[in-house]
Design a binder for these strands. Structure first.
Length: 565
RNA sequence: CAAGGUGUAGCGCAGUUUGGUAGCGCGUUUGGUUCGGGACCAAAAGGUCGGGGGUUCGAAUCCCUUCACCUUGACCA
C-alpha cells in the first residue's frame, strides 16, 4: 500500500470529545472519526485491523465446527413476543414499523432466528450438535452511549448459537467454547480472564464474561488471589453470616428532620455515621412497587434485586409513585409501610440495632428502630466491596476494572421451548432442544488491543493483528537512489507475502517516523543515506532497536522478525 | 431520566464578565530556503460564532427557546 494513496489521517491534536486513552489513540492514528453519540466512521486502518480480528475469530469458530451464515437484521415483533424479549429488551431496542404497521426491531442479538434455523434443519439427534454463527452489526439504543467505541449504539458482534440433545451436552460444548475463547484472546495478544456474570435479558442458567484487563474499563470486577474466583461485581454474593441482635432500646421515636432527604444530610443533622441508617429505596418492578433496604453507606444492587423479584423491568420509583403508596420521597421507611407492599432487606441489616429509618411523613425520621418493628424478606441485596470475603474460600476479595469482550451462555430451553424447536431422540421420541450462545464485541476487541499495546508515542501492535507488518520509509523522495531501493524492497516484501506500507509521501523524515510510531507498525525499513553503501536500517517498534542491514538480506531479516512476532 | 459542562475555520482553542469590523496555534494551498525526528520565511484560501426568536442604532457577547455533544450519577429514598 502506498501511503500517498492511503486514507490514514493521523492527527497531532486529539479530539476533545473522546476521553479514554484507547479512544484518543484510535482517533489520532486515523482509525475512527465520531459521527454522533455512539456512532462512528470506521476508517480503512481500523477496518483492516477489524478484519484481522475477524480472521482469528473465524479460525476459532472453524475449530468449533461452527458454520458461518447471516440472519436478517430486522426481527418481527411477533417473534420477539413469543420469547418474551419484546418487553425484556424494551427500550434498549431500536424498533420500527413497516408500511403495513407491523412492528420490527433492529436486532440487538439473534437467539430467535438462530433457534428458528435450528428448528428448520435439525430433524433428529443425528444432526446434533448443531451450531451456526454470524459476524454482523448489532444495534442497541443504549441509555447512555459512552467511552467511545466501547459502548456504541451500533457495533459488530460475532454471535454463535449451539443446539444440543441434553443439558450436559450443552454444558460440555460451552466448556469447549470457553477454552477456545481463551485460546483466541491469547492469540490476539490480549490479557483476559473469564468471570461469572448475570445473564440479563439473555436468560439462561450459566454464563461467563470474558474481561480484558483495563484500568479505564467500565465494568467493576471482584477477584480472589487465593482461590482464583473472579466475577462481575454485580453478581458477587455477599455471604457473611449475620445474626439478629437483641440490644434494643425499646420503642422507636419520631424525630423531625426538616429538609434532610439524603443520608449525607441526615448524617450532618443527627451527627450519626452512615452505618446507623437504613436506606429505603422504592422500585417499580413491572409497574408494581417494592421497597429495598440496605445500610446507609451501601448501594442497592439492582441486578440482585431483579433476580430476587424475577421481573422484566426494574426502575427506581418516581416521586409520584412514592406518593401513591402513601409515603414521601426522602422519608421512606419500612415501619408503617402499606402492608401490601413487599419489603426486601439486605442480610446485613439483621445485625443492626437502634437504627434510623424514614417515617413515611414529610420531615420525619424514626430513631432507635429495630428489625422487630417491621416485617420483611431477608435477601442478599447489596454490592460486594473490596474487603468483603470470597464466596468460595472466605479470603478477602480484591476489585479491579475490566472491559467486557465476550459473553457466553448456556441457555437451556429458554428459546427452544417458546419457539417449539424439537428433535427426535434415539428412542424415536420428540424432545425439546437445549441451546447455548456465545458473543464477542469486535470493536471492543480492537479497542482493548490498543489499550493493552501502546506507549507514549502511540500504538505497538502485536504482529498477528497488525494490518501492515512493515513500514518502508524513504528519507528523501527526491533522491533517486533512495526511491529506487525503497520501491524495490517494497515490491520484494509484498511478493514475499508480507503486507507493507510504503511511506512515499513528500514529508520530512520526522513526520514519517512519528506516524510510524503512532500507527504502531511492528517493523520499519529506512532507506536513507546508507543506500549508496548498499545498506538500509531495520527498526523494531516494540523495542526501539535499529540495525543496519545489507539490502540483499532485508527480506530474509524481516521474514525472521515477522515469524518471531 | 437527573445534575453539571461545552458548542466560534478541517483539528485544538481564545474572545462572552463590561455589546462596537471574527482572532490564535496546528493543518491546507502557493512561492522560496531547508532536509535523518512533527523545520523556517512570505503570501493566500477557509467562519450560517450549533439552530430559532427577542432586546438594541449595533449581538459570538444580553434575554427567551430549542438542538447536539461531553462528564458524572443512575447512590436519591
Amino acid at each position: 500500500m502506498l501511503y500517498s494513496k492511503f486514507l490514514l489521517p493521523t492527527m497531532k491534536n486529539e479530539p476533545s470529545d473522546m476521553d479514554s486513552t484507547s479512544q484518543k489513540l484510535m482517533a489520532r492514528s486515523g482509525m475512527i472519526r465520531k459521527v454522533s453519540s455512539g456512532l462512528f466512521y470506521y476508517l480503512p486502518y481500523f477496518n483492516m485491523l477489524l478484519r484481522k480480528v475477524s480472521y482469528e475469530i473465524r479460525r476459532s469458530m472453524d475449530a468449533m465446527h461452527c458454520n458461518e451464515m447471516k440472519f436478517p437484521i430486522l426481527v418481527s415483533q411477533e417473534i420477539l413476543e413469543k420469547t418474551g424479549r419484546w418487553t425484556a429488551f424494551g427500550k434498549e431496542m431500536f424498533s420500527l414499523k413497516d408500511r403495513n404497521g407491523n412492528g420490527y426491531a433492529i436486532s440487538p442479538t439473534n437467539e430467535e432466528y438462530a433457534t428458528l434455523v435450528a428448528k428448520m434443519f435439525i430433524k433428529s439427534y443425528n444432526d446434533l450438535p448443531f451450531s451456526v454463527y454470524q459476524i454482523q452489526q448489532k444495534h442497541r439504543d443504549e441509555i447512555r452511549p459512552r467511552n467511545g467505541v466501547i459502548r456504541a449504539r451500533e457495533f459488530t458482534m460475532k454471535d454463535a448459537y449451539s443446539f444440543h440433545a441434553t443439558e450436559d451436552e450443552a454444558i460440555s460444548y460451552y466448556q469447549k467454547m470457553k477454552q477456545e475463547y481463551t485460546n483466541l484472546f491469547t492469540r490476539l495478544g490480549l490479557k483476559t480472564f473469564a468471570v461469572k456474570a448475570d445473564s440479563g435479558a439473555m436468560g439462561g442458567n450459566l454464563c461467563e464474561e470474558f474481561m480484558a484487563v483495563a484500568d479505564e474499563g467500565e465494568t467493576p470486577l471482584a477477584f480472589c488471589d487465593n482461590c482464583g474466583y473472579a466475577a462481575n461485581l454485580e453478581v458477587v454474593p455477599v455471604t457473611n453470616t449475620y445474626v439478629e441482635q437483641n440490644g434494643f432500646k425499646g420503642r422507636y421515636k419520631k424525630v423531625i428532620t426538616e429538609r434532610a432527604h439524603t443520608v449525607k444530610e441526615l448524617m450532618d443533622m443527627l451527627q450519626m455515621p452512615a452505618t446507623s441508617f437504613v436506606k429505603s429505596m422504592v422500585y417499580m418492578a413491572d409497574d408494581k412497587p417494592v421497597v429495598a433496604l440496605v445500610r446507609g453507606d451501601r448501594q442497592v444492587n439492582e441486578v440482585k434485586l431483579k433476580n430476587v423479584l424475577k421481573c422484566n423491568v426494574l426502575e427506581l420509583a418516581t416521586v409520584k409513585d412514592i406518593e401513591k403508596i402513601g409515603s414521601v420521597c426522602g422519608f421512606v421507611g419500612p415501619v408503617g409501610m402499606r402492608e401490601d407492599i413487599p419489603i426486601f432487606a439486605d442480610y446485613e441489616i439483621m445485625q443492626m440495632q437502634n437504627f434510623v429509618v424514614g417515617g413515611n411523613e414529610k420531615d420525619i425520621h424514626l430513631l432507635d428502630v429495630n428489625v422487630k418493628d417491621f416485617s420483611c424478606k431477608w435477601v442478599d441485596l447489596r454490592f460486594a466491596e473490596q474487603g468483603d470475603v470470597c464466596p468460595i474460600c472466605g479470603k478477602p476479595l480484591k476489585t479491579a476494572m475490566g472491559t467486557e469482550l465476550g459473553h457466553i451462555f448456556v441457555l437451556g430451553q429458554k428459546y427452544t421451548k417458546s419457539l417449539d424447536a424439537t428433535f427426535i431422540d434415539n428412542q424415536g421420541k420428540t424432545q425439546t432442544l437445549y441451546g447455548g450462545c456465545y458473543g464477542i464485541g469486535l470493536e471492543r476487541v480492537v479497542a482493548s488491543i490498543i489499550d493493552q499495546h501502546h506507549d507514549e508515542k502511540g500504538l505497538v501492535l502485536p504482529t498477528v493483528v497488525a494490518p501492515f507488518k512493515v513500514d518502508v520509509i524513504v528519507v528523501d523522495t527526491k533522491n533517486e537512489a533512495q526511491m529506487e531501493t525503497a520501491t524495490m524492497l517494497y515490491e520484494k516484501l509484498e511478493n514475499a507475502g508480507i503486507p507493507v506500507l510504503f511511506d512515499d509521501r513528500k514529508e520530512r523524515v520526522g513526520v514519517k517516523f512519528n506516524d510510524f510510531e503512532l500507527v504502531g507498525i511492528p517493523i520499519k525499513v529506512v532507506c536513507g543515506r546508507d543506500v549508496t553503501q548498499g545498506m538500509v536500517e531495520v527498526g523494531v517498534r516494540e523495542t526501539g532497536t535499529v540495525e543496519k542491514v545489507d539490502i540483499q538480506h532485508v527480506v530474509h531479516t524481516i521474514q525472521n522478525l515477522v515469524k518471531k512476532g
